Amino acid sequence: MRFDVYTPLLAALLLPSVSAVIGRRVAPALAARVLTAAAVLTAAATTWSLVLLTATLLGDAPPVIREARQDGHPLADPVPEAIGLAACLALAVVVWRVQRAVRAERRTRRALRRLCEGHPGDTELVVAACEVPQAFAIPGRPGRILVTSAMLSALEPEERRVLLAHERAHLTHRHGRVVTAATLAAAANPLLGPVRAAVTFLVERWADEQAATEVGDRVTTARALARAALSAGRSRRSHALGFTDRAVTRRIAALQTGPPSSLWPAAGVLALGAVAALFAAGATSDLVGLLSGALS
């Protein structure tokens, strides 16, 4: 346990550095899934490591151990007490950050769905009379696409097809869940913040590729992105998945070429997340062994 319990933290330090690489070398759909899975595994492993480090503070309660058996054995101290106390405080911060992230996600979803109130249940497209060019995919049952009148006016008919195909891809592939998972992982472990940003960008790239495939024209897709971005300007962003958000210039540049197809970086990222989980499991086994030895 003396070493295993700290390994997930090392994985959390390495994962952000490889997230940019996987974004360039792996197709957006696979890269988004793999990064999200690795982030969730790493966040869970680091959080569990904090739990284990906090649990070592039980070694400071010898009466409990002595009462378990009259000739009870002393419990070995696997980590310094200061580290256990720091882990306890960090665990409290993790709980607070995750709760705050969950509340923010719920507020955003409620605010967007309120904009769609009053429309029939089977309505997919909702057009809002607004001078700010925006478009959002709103997950739920049913999922809806919210587009402002200003955005529709800014686009040509073929470009509107791109926009709708893009937002429909968000709903079809449940990109909201992918981004939410990455967001909660980053809330549990702030070191994973760059991974969350990479996942959010990749789901937009994923939707771009889906739109280009549906429309059958990558040039038109890139032009629709550029026109929408110029129209939106510096409009206020939200936490929702939006057509004009997330590094539009990089998305346009990516559409000028084909999506990458390498698989090895994805396998490496998954392995990194798996290693963090395995070492956390190993630390758990070590701690259980220490407690069992003291109580037997």
Rank of each mutant, 00 (worst) to 15 (best):
R227S: 08
L241Q: 06
A101R: 06
A38Q: 03
A240G: 09
A280C: 06
V98D: 02
S285W: 12
W48L: 10
T47Q: 11
A267F: 11
T148K: 13
L57H: 14
Q256V: 01
V162Q: 05
P265I: 09
D217E: 04
P133N: 12
H119T: 08
L115H: 10
S17I: 14
A224V: 07
L9Y: 12
P139D: 01
V275R: 00
L10N: 02
E131P: 03
A86Q: 06
A90S: 11
L191M: 12
I138S: 10
R97S: 04
T183Y: 04
G143W: 02
R161V: 11
L171A: 01
D77F: 09
V195G: 07
H166V: 09
L272E: 02
S49V: 04
A44Y: 09
L35C: 02
L125W: 10
S238T: 15
E117S: 08
H173L: 03
A87Q: 03
L164T: 10
A150F: 08
L184E: 00
V40H: 08
L58E: 12
A274K: 01
A229G: 14
E167Y: 06
L89V: 07
T108A: 03
D60R: 06
L225S: 03
G118C: 03
D286C: 08
I145V: 15
L89D: 04
A197D: 10
G140R: 00
V179R: 10
G233H: 15
L112M: 11
A44K: 05
H73G: 09
H239T: 07
T108C: 01
A129V: 13
W96N: 09
A29I: 02
T42C: 13
T213A: 13
P139V: 02
Q210V: 14
P120K: 02
T7Q: 10
E131F: 02
R234Y: 13
R114D: 08
R160M: 14
C88R: 09
T36D: 11
T47F: 07
R227K: 12
G273Q: 04
G121H: 03
T54I: 09
G121C: 00
Q256H: 02
A38K: 07
R246L: 14
A37V: 07
L9G: 11
W206H: 11
A165Y: 05
T123A: 14
R2E: 04
S262V: 12
V288H: 10
D4P: 01
T123N: 07
S49G: 05
A267N: 07
L295E: 00
E159P: 13
S292Y: 06
A31Q: 04
V195Q: 12
V79D: 01
A43R: 04
V127R: 13
A181E: 00
V147G: 00
L41D: 14
